[in-house]
Design a protein around this nucleic acid. Structure first.
Length: 112
DNA sequence: CGCCTGACGTTGC
DNA sequence: AGCAACGCCAGGC
């Protein structure tokens, strides 16, 4: 793993990697957890590069609305939806159902 | 070296 | 309550 990239990406990867199956979280939450106040975009940006890493389930990371905003960046626009459905996450019209219930908070799950 | 874009979020109207 | 604009930061051209 080349350290040419900022630690950002690795930090994000670590958190995303800790996301349990059937659970989802938001970019802003990860950003806030890492201290990237308004770096929600950066998290999504990191996800873009994360597509190369197999242990980074980017499909479990959605926006604040629980909407699959990044599905278009996957191999296929339906892959993200498929993966979530395969994990038991109900997805309707590119939107995660029971998002609030499926929400995974790193600050709580990881113990801050 | 400077401008534009981008998997978001928040605030204002 | 819905829509628009701004802010933040990094990578690509």
């Amino acid at each position: 793993m080349p350290l040419d990239k900022p630690n950002y990406f690795e930090l994000v990867y670590q958190v995303v990697r800790e996301i349990p199956e059937g659970r989802v979280t938001s970019y802003g939450t990860i950003a806030h957890y890492l201290g990237l106040k308004s770096g929600a975009r950066m998290v999504g940006y990191a996800m873009n590069a994360a597509h190369a890493l197999p242990d980074v389930p980017a499909h479990r990371v959605v926006n604040r609305q629980g909407l699959l905003t990044g599905k278009h960046h996957f191999a296929t626009p339906t892959l993200m939806e498929e993966l979530l459905l395969a994990e038991g996450v109900q997805v309707k019209n590119d939107q995660v159902q029971d998002f609030q219930t499926r929400f995974w908070n790193p600050e709580i799950e990881l113990g801050v």
